[in-house]
């Protein structure tokens, strides 16, 4: 009975899904708020120990990649297949850069004996333990979303190459793009909450 593809419907479904993803992080932000209220001074102390430069670089990287994903959708709409492929590859590359940065950042923290259940955190101030606990859980979960986003972008890339995503049928790419924007959006919240706190 349905004729053709209902793009609006697909988008509604995707938005509902993204909404649920935001609520997933929302639960963690509730925890953050409750503990921030309980240990404000340790949160600002912990925040100063994080590397703001890497954090800022990662923010820029994600923002740029978000832009290039959006541009690739426009490119597909304008039938500029090569350009779309290039932009997508660049976006995925940005995701890799983000994760590599994250790896070095976490690595450095591990090196200083700051990781879940580490000696320093367990015997130190409880407020710091909670701060870094939340830091690992939230950035970890976000990292997982970056990986999922990269997989979605890669699938879209393959589909663009194979000519399955075209100017008249680009819902897959568009939804992958929306997901990538979500990853970006959540980072925009995570960055100030941990790196720029007070």
């Amino acid at each position: 009975m349905s004729t053709g593809i209902d793009k609006t419907g697909i988008k509604i479904g995707m938005w509902l899904f993204l909404y649920s993803e935001i609520l997933l992080f929302g639960g963690l932000f509730v925890l953050y708020a409750a503990y921030f209220y309980k240990y404000p001074e340790f949160f600002s102390e912990g925040g100063k120990e994080l590397n703001r430069v890497i954090g800022a670089v990662n923010t820029v990287v994600l923002l740029v990649s978000s832009f290039t994903v959006a541009a690739s959708i426009t490119a597909v709409q304008r039938k500029a297949k090569k350009q779309a492929i290039g932009l997508l590859i660049f976006s995925i590359f940005c995701g890799v850069v983000f994760l590599v940065n994250k790896y070095f950042e976490w690595g450095a923290k591990f090196h200083h004996d700051i990781y879940p259940n580490s000696e320093t955190l367990v015997s130190g101030e409880v407020g710091l333990n909670i701060f870094f606990g939340l830091y690992y859980v939230i950035t970890g979960l976000h990292g997982l979303h970056v990986i999922i986003g990269m997989i979605l972008l890669s699938i879209s890339l393959v589909l663009v190459m194979a000519g399955k995503v075209t100017e008249s049928k680009y819902s897959m790419l568009e939804n992958a793009g929306l997901y990538w924007h979500l990853v970006d959006l959540i980072w925009i919240f995570v960055f100030p909450l941990f790196y720029l706190v007070l």
Partner: peptide, 30 residues
Amino acid sequence: ATPVISITLVLVVVERLFSIGLFEPDKGGD
């Protein structure tokens, strides 16, 4: 509502694996 329980359950598993202590009073949790 479901995402909230999802993250809560994930936290239980994370606590069991890494003992961060987000809900452990000795470690500052509530």
